[in-house]
Design a protein around this nucleic acid. Sequence first.
RNA 1: GGACGGGUGGGUGAGUGGCUAAAACCAGCAGACUGUAAAUCUGCCGCUCCUUGCGGGCUACGAAGGUUCGAAUCCUUCCCCGUCCA
Length: 421
Amino acid sequence: MTENKFKPVEEQLAYVKKGVAEIIPEPELKASLEKSLKTGKPLRVYLGVDPTAPDLHLGHTVVLRKLKHFQDLGHTAVFLIGDSSAMIGDPTGVSETRPPLTREQVHANAKTYLEQVFKILDRKKTEVRYNSEWLGKMNAEDVVRLCSHYRLARMLEREDFSSRLEKGQPIAVHELLYPLLTAYDAVSLKSDVELGATEQKFNLLVHREIQREYGLPGQAILTMPILVGLDGQRKMSKSLGNYVGITEAPPKMFGKLMSIPDDLMWSYYELLTDRSMEGIENLKKAVEIGALHPMNAKMDLAKEIITEFHSRNDAQAAAIEFQKVVQQKELPSEVMQYFVPESGKIKLARRLVDWANLSSRTEADRLIGSGAVEINGEVIRDPAYDLDLNAPRELVIRVGKPREGRIHLFKVTIGPPPPKS
RNA sequence: GGACGGGUGGGUGAGUGGCUAAAACCAGCAGACUGUAAAUCUGCCGCUCCUUGCGGGCUACGAAGGUUCGAAUCCUUCCCCGUCCA
């Protein structure tokens, strides 16, 4: 509660501005910071999430990190779980009606969600709220009253509504209610600032407007860019499979991060690390003039990100494993091992389904046919290949590239398994 | 409630009785090239069986029935979506 609890406004603003897409309106945010500095009262900064899926990936962390930045500066971070609104389903960016979740699903999701969130936010300093606290108390009249504060024409300005309307795609009435109900969150929380991804801009603006309708000053809005996924094309999302989950094992994170297009790494540096913009620019320049190999810059990036979610040692180990397995093509330190008794012959394709965790026999045939299967370094191209089981020996089998859900490299020992110790 | 249009593989979308496991494109997978990057090129891209063959069987075009030697394509009923009218 001391006078000098906060840093100078310009300094705060600069810290908070790193990586942001837009601040609406910036002078207001600045004014709020000035006021808070003068009064010693922290700003209430909130981020609302729908716990629709329990697994967080790096895409979610972009905006969480920004909330963390406010927390670092001594402001109050409010993490809002939209347990009520999640049951409506936000139509943003989906362009189709979402199936509503049940209350049980929402609560289960919320719980795992929070656990992950505190890998980034400071648990002790975070105010966690649920919007069922106030939305659950509203009756039909309250909802109608809330709705009376907004106009249909304004609602239809929203891009995904207007485009769906144009294309003759369905829009369910309850979808219109989503931004209004979540606006009531902003009213209840009396927030000074709300964070969100750029795709949330419309919702955030509605929140601000409704706050004013309810006699509040109207929060400032700060939007963060959407993180592009591993494919370098589309937004990072679980359903597209182009994501890095924050609970994934370090070696897997490492491999995934190394697979991003080089150009993308600058945006990852900006949105996923605490490096200053200046530092990132220098790095970029070093790569451009050839002083730094882009691969090394990317390895550093991967290490930094992994350090945040695991530890420095884990990150280092993941890097070493990557070099060993991928670059030097050696066996990984932990390999799946299978034992097959000696008995005549078997079809390779048939066994591959289990060994490599393939989806079907047909897939095994296809992989063999396209030269993706190697035994002890020798490519097998005949889908009808018979594995001779008469001589006891050890085989190292490789199936394609490492990929989610597939065991791409493993050992098969023909002969009895070693006695259990 | 009425009139009209529409529902095809993960997505967009062609096909209007057999040559269609269904064009094309995207996504995906694999190979080559690399820095397990991207880009590019090439192949693959429902499931299953075996004697792995331009092989056999099964499943698939909103749902269920029907016509036909044969249906994604025709008929009937139902479900869903949109537009316009009220």
